[in-house]
Design a protein around this nucleic acid. Structure first.
Lengths: 208, 208
DNA sequence: TTGAAATCTAAACGATCGGTCGTATAGTTT
DNA sequence: AAACTATACGACCGATCGTTTAGATTTCAA
């Protein structure tokens, strides 16, 4: 059961994917090259390549590894907060903090690769689109839960609210880096809370 | 003054830049290659290269050429509409139509290249950031004009409203292509109008 | 009509790309 | 200890990248 060879392979594979996601958040999944990856990790190109068999498989594995890091940094902590509006605000805050803190050095990994592949049909776009739908579904589920608790207008469409909150998060992620203006995170948070205040059925501590 | 040489050069230069912006909206400014450009236009690589002297100059010229097309497709038509809330809604509608119609085949050129370069300091990022600030300023100026006409809450911050409307437009541009879901444009339009209804001082025909 | 300026081509440069191959090393199984 | 397996290496492949050079062709000005 304790195969030191497989364990070693798994360790380097994880190191490769971590670095790959970091690079791709800046350079894109296409700008990510096996040679650069090998040089950064001080291993041979073939050593990196052999783990995946093709560049596309490396890219797909990178997306999945980044998904795990996104869930750990954003979704899981928000789900620790009790159901309702508090959890929804936590989800917004966690996303903004994840972008601002630089969990990936180039900002939100999924924003970078989604913009890169939105007009390039193929397996990579499919995988990225699935990740986006999962993220929007998470948002929508938390909105719906807040509605069931009577904290948000039951007439609002959860998918629409999810789209709006995500739009503000993406715009903040882009603007902060493109225009070198971290103050936009405060602005985006206020816009998110402002949108939720319109939908809230009463005063709620999470909305100030 | 009528130099047929210069005129001919200007014609091919314009053709190159048009094609370059089309390609870059799909492949990015980095995925744009001189060889591909030359093959598409059936000219030699060096013939393309000579017009710009370096790839970076070609990329910079491409951004400027794309700016002109963006203004022609979005800003100028909206400015034909009279001052106020009507013009603001026209600006939103024009942006959504520009993205949906595929003025650039890969969707909004500036969204693609902004996401590509937001974490890559240099002249290209600076140029793209300037274009973004110009676009947000256009939005904000139209908001402020509507405020002066008494159609929008004078307490609202024009820059914030610009950020919010642009966020919804970008999200629609991304989602429509990534998830192959053109219906998102209707949703985004409703979100934009919903935001403006909250800020409107009275009923206005442009908000339905 | 001749010379200069400009547009463009063909060919090639070194560098780097994704990918292949044979081999050496380290760990497991028998 | 021998046989087997997984990992990783170095060398190399053809293709393509941005860029350079030399020269041919077109156009204007004298």
């Amino acid at each position: 059961m304790t195969d030191g060879r497989l364990a070693r392979g798994e360790r380097t594979r994880a190191a490769v994917l971590r670095r790959a996601a970091d690079i791709a958040s800046i350079e894109g999944l296409d700008g990510l090259t096996i040679g650069r990856l090998a040089a950064d990790l001080q291993v041979s190109k073939a050593g990196v390549f052999a783990h995946f068999g093709s560049k596309e498989e490396l890219q797909l594995a990178t997306i999945r590894a980044a998904s795990d890091r996104f869930v750990d940094a954003v979704v899981a902590p928000a789900l620790d907060v009790p159901d309702g509006l508090g959890r929804l605000v936590a989800l917004c805050d966690r996303f903004l903090a994840y972008s601002r803190r630089g969990v990936f050095p180039g900002g939100c990994f999924f924003f970078s690769v989604a913009a890169e592949y939105d007009a390039k049909p193929g397996r990579l776009r499919d995988e990225i689109a699935a990740a986006r739908r999962g993220w929007l579904d998470t948002y929508a589920a938390v909105v719906a839960a807040a509605q069931r608790r009577g904290e948000l207008d039951p007439e609002a469409d959860p998918a629409t609210v999810a789209f709006e909150l995500d739009a503000l998060g993406m715009a903040a992620n882009l603007h902060a880096r493109l225009c070198d203006d971290p103050a936009v995170y405060q602005l985006a948070r206020e816009s998110m809370l402002g949108r939720l205040r319109v939908l809230a059925t009463g005063r709620h501590p999470a909305l100030r």
